[in-house]
Design a protein around this nucleic acid. Structure first.
Lengths: 199, 199
DNA sequence: TTATGATGAAAACGATCGGTCACTTTTTAT
DNA sequence: ATAAAAAGTGACCGATCGTTTTCATCATAA
């Protein structure tokens, strides 16, 4: 069916664009990877550029559905140990899920060329995480779990190092396990510095 | 002279590769940007790929000269305020120097394709900064300026957020001033949390 | 069953890519 | 001054790019 093929082409595009970039990808290879002739592309997309835009649409929609709205917040941690656990759960998914990895890599490669990729990259790598943890930390401060401070600053101090380590996983997949351990070590360091152990 | 032209080609390559990536750059445009015919490229470089490798050589050598050796360490801060000032001096340079910006962008774009670019990227974005500040923080702890802790962990917690903000400057140059202010705010937050104000 | 629209592939299109070659101009060395 | 070497250019090469055209195949609906 048409819908299926379209989706398969988009998947192949995400894969190839994330490895070779938009300019470094040619349609023949892309279509061959899913068993089609390159000319068949144009039954589903007007051009390579339109395929790129459709892929971006998909990535933007996916982000909106999964990370976009505040009601998608994970349950607020009830203890410092839970914060570490929740963080590790989230980071493991985001650092090891193939689709999410490819999405980040595409955004990394095309952020300087495409404005929508640039905006989504900033959300993925910075603002999305800090906004999410701002809310979480504000809640934890109210519960007396965290030292009272600017939640946004604490969220930035917490998520930015994690973001750097996720980038490291994308760049050097061999070091993923090592990086995840470093995330956990950093998370524990963070709660040691900012946490309050009961009233 | 030959040396001059070779250098001019390398400069043009850094500029174009940083904007369009290796695959997205064509030799005619590159050479035209410095007033040569594309065929003249091959008087100085065997191929586009060899030009790329020569550019990488240059970037690696530049990094080694400026950030590579421990004796290139800036003078250890004598106070917390000096740490903030020194940080801002360094970050302003690294976030606003055109050549350094272009170098980071090239490494960002080619990190998944080229192993040497990948290794240099990790130095630029993570290990170089943390190693440098590990030494600085160890010195400051001995002087009683910083709370005693693992210098490497503190250096990571300090430099990673700054690295994220530098990436933001590369991605969205319009926000450079804003990002620099955020670096300063974060730096002050850091010394507030980890600093000791005299014995 | 047959008409129809959607889906696929093969061949070919013009454009552009990196690279070569024959030739001229400029620089350098003697 | 002059020979040799280096640097630069325009024309051209084969390969490959994204895309179009033409035609075959398939599912579906009348």
């Amino acid at each position: 069916m048409a819908k299926d093929t379209k989706k398969r082409i988009l998947d192949a595009a995400l894969d190839m664009f994330s490895r070779n970039g938009y300019a470094g990808t040619n349609m023949r290879e892309l279509m061959a990877s899913i068993g089609y002739a390159k000319s068949s592309t144009y039954r589903h997309f007007e051009s390579k550029e339109e395929l790129w835009n459709a892929l971006l649409d998909e990535m933007i929609a996916y982000y909106g559905e999964h990370f976009g709205s505040p009601d998608r917040l994970p349950p607020a941690p009830e203890s410092l140990e839970e914060l570490v656990a929740m963080t590790m759960r989230m980071v493991r998914i985001t650092a090891q899920d193939e689709t999410i990895i490819k999405t980040r890599k595409v955004l990394t490669l095309e952020q300087f060329r495409d404005e929508r990729a640039r905006n989504l990259a900033t959300k993925h790598f910075l603002t999305g995480l800090t906004e999410m943890f701002s809310r979480i930390f504000a809640g934890m401060m109210e519960k007396g779990l965290l030292r009272r401070d600017d939640p946004a600053m604490l969220a930035f101090a917490y998520t930015a190092p994690i973001s750097v380590l996720i980038h490291l996983c994308d760049r050097e997949p061999d070091k993923t396990e090592e990086a995840l351990q470093q995330v956990e070590a950093f998370s524990r360091h963070f709660v040691k510095v900012y946490g309050k152990t009961g009233e």
